[in-house]
Design a protein around this nucleic acid. Structure first.
Lengths: 229, 229
DNA sequence: AGCCAGTATCAGGAATACATAATTATAGCG
DNA sequence: CGCTATAATTATGTATTCCTGATACTGGCT
């Protein structure tokens, strides 16, 4: 039997299941802070609010749980995962390692056009810094990091990084809480760019690791202070 | 054979939900190869086999999906995720980076008793190598790696590593497919131990990275060959 | 004979219904 | 008056049912 499936060609229609959409929705609700840390997640209430049934919601909660955004206690329901300073520090340590790896790989794998794009982003970053536009600076900063991760040409690494970033994102904005750290950060980005352009893997990795470590330490301290209140 | 060891006796009721047990069960089924790569997962059939209903099974599938062990196409069901050589290579690259990080941290954080324990394991590893006991060698090898990860004192890193190892485990055993690589591997473990005992973070990290990279390359090649058949 | 259309069948997705554990309220007792 | 035990209530966990989209089959057509 010749099963030549010519009609198998299926345009990647984004057929999103309900639980997928709910996952995304809840994920942003958590990240945006709409659902605060530790908040109890009342299934029935949320179902009513989102106008869905419990089945897909519960599936979504399982997904978010294994992403580390939600904690589930058997027979006691789900709540938005609380991030202790210790966990947050661990997370940043981990992210630092991943970004270092990415920077190393990026140094050896990046194309010229990618480097050029990165240079442009860096220029814009500096102007945003000069303008004191903290919000857009922060956004662009994240984009630059994401760009470097993507330049590693490792999609597994990329998606994992993205996921960890989400877990950490609730605290990450604190990183640029102080002006002096801000200036330092811009500097580090520049030297990192230099290393990448020079295709110096080791150096790029080192700079990135230090950069993230600094950022992380800042954020951890900010978080500890805030928790102490 | 068809006997389900998913007995849920009320007497031994742990706090584990059904979907959690199912997740674990399916996870081992996949890792053990009982459910081969690409195998379609028929929900009704599995439910009947495990004597449960579809609801918890589907929840478990969502979890396994976000762990990367199962792929889900909307309206087309779930199947055991297939690991292409490319993905496998990415995975190993990633694991390499994580283990390097762990080795670096371990070098600075390990206690003397941990180092002693590790040295004992190394001794045993060498004797297993001499005896040609491949199976136990492989087991101990994994334990050593896990031990070093644990010595990093970063539980987030540890659990992530464990998860990635699962995804890769179906191909990992191929790593020691050749004798010469085997001997090399034992050597690398020894020098790694030396570096850890000397608390030389950088060196420990480098050795670990190289070690995993070698192992990975071997495994990737083996996988490619096998896929080509 | 091969191909396409229409239909039948089936499996997965979502909603509802049911069971059970946890929490809270209440009543009885000390 | 307070404490404990037990009942009521609520929310979670699981099963069942319904619905919808996908695949397979059949029959008519070129």
């Amino acid at each position: 039997m010749t099963t030549s499936n010519l009609t198998r060609k299926k345009t990647s229609m984004k057929r999103r299941s309900l639980h997928e959409e709910i996952s995304d929705h809840l994920r942003s609700m958590i990240i945006e802070g709409e659902l605060p840390e530790g908040e109890r997640i009342d299934e029935s209430a949320l179902c009513e609010q989102l106008e869905i049934s419990r089945t897909p919601l519960r599936e979504a909660l399982k997904v978010l749980h294994s992403e580390g955004l939600v904690s589930i206690e058997p027979n006691r329901g789900a709540r938005v995962a609380v991030l202790t300073p210790e966990e947050f520090a661990e997370l940043f340590e981990l992210i630092g390692g991943l970004e270092r790896m990415a920077a190393e790989l990026a140094a050896s794998r990046a194309t010229d056009s990618e480097l050029k794009k990165l240079a442009q982003m860096q220029t814009r970053l500096e102007s945003l810094y000069s303008a004191g536009d903290r919000h857009n600076y922060f956004e662009l900063n994240q984009d630059i990091h994401r760009m470097i991760i993507a330049m590693s040409r490792n999609s597994t690494l990329t998606s994992l990084h993205e996921q960890l970033l989400m877990r950490a994102s609730r605290g990450r904005y604190m990183a640029i809480g102080t002006e002096d750290r801000w200036e330092e950060s811009v500097q580090e980005h520049q030297t990192l760019l230099d290393a990448l352009q020079a295709k110096d893997s080791v150096k790029a990795g080192e700079i990135m690791l230090e950069h993230v470590r600094h950022t992380g330490d800042c954020a951890v301290n900010a978080l500890k202070l805030r928790k102490a209140v």
